[in-house]
Design a protein around this nucleic acid. Sequence first.
DNA 1: TTGTAAGCGTTATCAC
DNA 2: GTGATAACGCTTACAA
Lengths: 333, 333
Amino acid sequence: MSATIRDVAKLANVSVATVSRVLNGTAKVNEETKNAVLRAQKELDFHLNSFARTLATKESNTIGVLVSDISDPFFALMIKACDQTARSFKKGLIITQGFYDEEKEIKAIENLLSHQCCGIIAHLLAISDEKLSSYMKKYPYIVLINRRLDGFEDRCVNIDNFNAMKDLTEYLIGLGHKKFVYIDSEFDIADAKERLEGFKQALSNHSLCIDDKYILQTKPYSENAVKTANTLIEMGVDKFSAIVCYNDSIAMSIINVFLNHGIKIPDDVSITGFDDLFFASVIYPSLTTVQNPIEKMGQEAVKLSFARFKKDETFCISEFETKILYRNSVKKN
Amino acid sequence: MSATIRDVAKLANVSVATVSRVLNGTAKVNEETKNAVLRAQKELDFHLNSFARTLATKESNTIGVLVSDISDPFFALMIKACDQTARSFKKGLIITQGFYDEEKEIKAIENLLSHQCCGIIAHLLAISDEKLSSYMKKYPYIVLINRRLDGFEDRCVNIDNFNAMKDLTEYLIGLGHKKFVYIDSEFDIADAKERLEGFKQALSNHSLCIDDKYILQTKPYSENAVKTANTLIEMGVDKFSAIVCYNDSIAMSIINVFLNHGIKIPDDVSITGFDDLFFASVIYPSLTTVQNPIEKMGQEAVKLSFARFKKDETFCISEFETKILYRNSVKKN
DNA sequence: TTGTAAGCGTTATCAC
DNA sequence: GTGATAACGCTTACAA
C-alpha cells in the first residue's frame, strides 16, 4: 500500500539505485537527477522501509536498552542519557523491561537480540550469573550496568558502591551517630551486597556494631518500603538515631511515613538515601544521599557497547565517581 | 555470521518452510520433525530475524509510543501501561521522545513510521495542528493522548480537564479560599487552556476574580518552577491563600521552595496539583490533586490504535474519569 | 505433512 | 554518474 523505492524510481525516471543514493547520500548524484528524485519522494510521501534497509545492511538503526521498570525514575534517567548518546550516533533506542523476573529478563534480551541492535545496554537483576555469562560470551557487545560479572569486568559499568556507602556511613559516625538501622534491597545482587558491606566496614572501622534485627530488607521501590517504615515505628524510633537506606526511593517512603506519624526528620531520626534522584533535592527535608552518576554511566555504556559492536575493543571505561550530597535529612550537631 | 533459517533447515534435514512453521506455530508439523527442528535451533542458537520477518509479513511486532520525555514520571507511567497492553497483543514497544520541540517531534513520528509499527500512541505538544492533521489523515491508526484535534475526536484520548479543574477550584472556594494564584503551563496546548478555563469558571461561578498578575506560567516540569516559587515569595505569600498548579511537578517544586523558606503548608498557603504522580501521596505534606487515569488511558489508547491498524473501526473510547484526591496540602477550615 | 520458489523493499557490486 | 541485479532472511501460496 505504501510507496516503495521502485515507485519513486519510476516516477523520477531513474533506477532504484539512484534513488537509494540520493536518499542515503552515499554517492554523488547529478544535481538535477537528485531534485527529480526528491520531488518524486515528496509527491509519493515516501519513506525508506527501515526493515528492508536493516535486512540489506545487517545493521539496524537501533541500540537496545534493558531495564527493570521504566517507571522507576532511576531507570528513566538512565534511558534518557542512553538516548542522547544513541542519537549522536544516529541511532534510535529500543527499550525493553525485565520487571525483576528472570524469565521476563530473558525474554527482554531475546527481544533485543532479534532486533539486531547495534549495541545492548542491560540492567539485569534476576537472571543467574551462569545464564548471563552465556549471553555475554555469545554477544560481545552486551554491556552491563550496575552488576559485576566475573570474567566480564571490562563490560560492567559500575560505581564503587562499597566505598560510597562506607564514606557516607563514616560521615554519619563523624556526626556522632552510633545506633543505626540499615534498609537493604531485597534483591540479591552485587550492588546491594557491596553497599551493605561498605556500611558494615565503616561501623567496624569505628568499633561499632549492629544487631541483625536492625538490618531490614525491602523491595527497592517506594511503595514497598511503607511496611518497613511501620516496622521501624513499632520497634521504637528511640532505638536508633540514623537510618541508612539502600536507595532514595526507600528513604523517601520512610521519611513520608515518619512525618505522617509526627516523627521529626532529622531532629528525631536522620535518614540517608543513595542515587540522588530528581526528587531527592526537592522533597522535604531534602535528602542527604550519594550522587550516582547514572547519566554518565548510561552515556559511556552506549559508547562502549556500540564500539564493541563495531569490533572496536580498544574503547574502555573505568569506574565512575560518586559524591556525597550533604543535605537536610541528617542532623548535624 | 549468525545462523539463518536455512542453516537450521539443513541441520534438521527439512525445508525452510517447515522450520518457519515450527518456530511460528503456524501449521501442524509432525512431532518428530518438529523436535528435529527444535534441536537444530538450539544447537545453532538460532533466532528468527525480526527484520526479515517484518519485511515478509508487512507487520512488525512493535507498537510505537511517542512522549515528550521519558524521565518525566507522568510519561513513564503512561509507557508502562502501554507496554502492558502491548504485551497482551504479543507486541513490543518502541519508544521515541519529542522533547517539547516541533522538529524533534516530527523526527520522532517519522522514526516510528519507518518502523512499520502496528499502532502509534503519541503525546505531542509542539507540532502544529495543521501538520499533525496531515499525519492523522495519512495514518489512520495514530492515536493522540492529551490533545484535542478537530476532526479526529474519536482518536483523541482525553480527560475532561475543564471540569476537573473547575471542581478542584470549587472545593477550595468551599473551604473559604478567595485569593488565588494559578500556575499555568508555558506550553500552548489544549489541556493547559482547559484547566485554566475551568479554574476561571469556578471563580466566576462564585463571583470571584483574579488579577492577571496572579496567573503565572512555567514549564511543566519541576526544575523550572523554582523560579516561579521565588517570584511568589517576592510578591508576598500573604497576598493569596491558595495556589492552584497546572500539575503535580510544579506543585511539588513550589512546596519545596516554600518549606525551605519557612513557609508552612498548608497553614500559611494551600497548594494543589494535577495528575497524582507517584510522589504526590509520598511527599510532605501529601498533595491534594486530581487523579489522572493516565494508565487506563495508555492501555485504551494502545487497544484503539491496534484495532484501527487492523482496520477495525468499531472500537471506540469515551472520555476518562478523574477524581479529586483530598490530602494534606490544603487547609481545611 | 512437507517442499519449492516467489516475493517483501532495501543496499551494494558490478558493469557501462 | 547511472543502471542491472544479486543478495539480505524470512513467510506463504501452491504443489506434491
